[in-house]
């Protein structure tokens, strides 16, 4: 799966939570970020592989799942999505028709939902909630444990907000 958006939207963190959930489930996993100047205000993305087999190339060019948090990211990756794949996008920031009929598209107004629900900055986790709801590959408890692993102790207060964001996303 590919998580992509502006630098600062938390795409790397969202990918890390997904990776940890895979790890807890006993899968082979890899997490590869984009790095460098493109992250400063440009587009940031990460490739997360979750597999039963050892992972070869961790760089994903044809994702099964694309989580797009802005238009440039959607445009960069949409053509590569595997036929039968799934796109989850922030429809409050992306207003574009998707011409492909061979993929499933979920439009979640995650930025607006985050703002309206006192979850500023957690648009990413609303989309993670939707992703895991669609994936169905692990229990809510596993996802919760993954969040606990990814949120450092000094930011423990954020855990509850992340939980709310994920739960909100799952209902979309």
């Amino acid at each position: 799966m590919v998580f992509a958006g502006f630098g600062g939207q938390g795409v790397l963190f969202a990918g890390k939570v997904a990776a940890y959930a895979g790890l807890i489930e006993g899968k082979e996993i890899s997490w590869l970020p984009s790095y460098g100047p493109e992250m400063r205000g440009g587009t940031a993305n990460c490739s997360v592989c979750i597999s039963d087999e050892p992972i070869g190339s961790p760089l994903i060019t044809a994702p099964n799942y694309l989580i797009a948090m802005n238009l440039p990211s959607l445009e960069r990756f949409i053509d590569g999505v595997e036929p039968g794949g799934t796109v989850i996008l922030d429809s409050s920031l992306i207003d574009r028709e998707i011409a492909r009929g061979d993929i499933t598209v979920h439009r979640v107004p995650s930025s607006r939902l985050a703002e309206e629900n006192g979850l500023a900055g957690l648009s990413n986790m609303i989309l993670v909630g939707k992703l895991f709801h669609e994936l169905g590959f692990c229990t809510d408890e596993v996802l919760d444990e993954a969040m606990q692993k990814c949120i450092p102790p000094r930011k423990a207060a954020m855990l509850e907000l992340n939980r709310r964001a994920v739960a909100l996303g799952a209902r979309q």
Binding site: K16, A19, I29, P33
Partner: peptide
């Protein structure tokens, strides 16, 4: 850079 930047278990 790939191996340095990527995370694996």
């Amino acid at each position: 850079g790939m191996l340095g930047q990527m995370m694996e278990p």
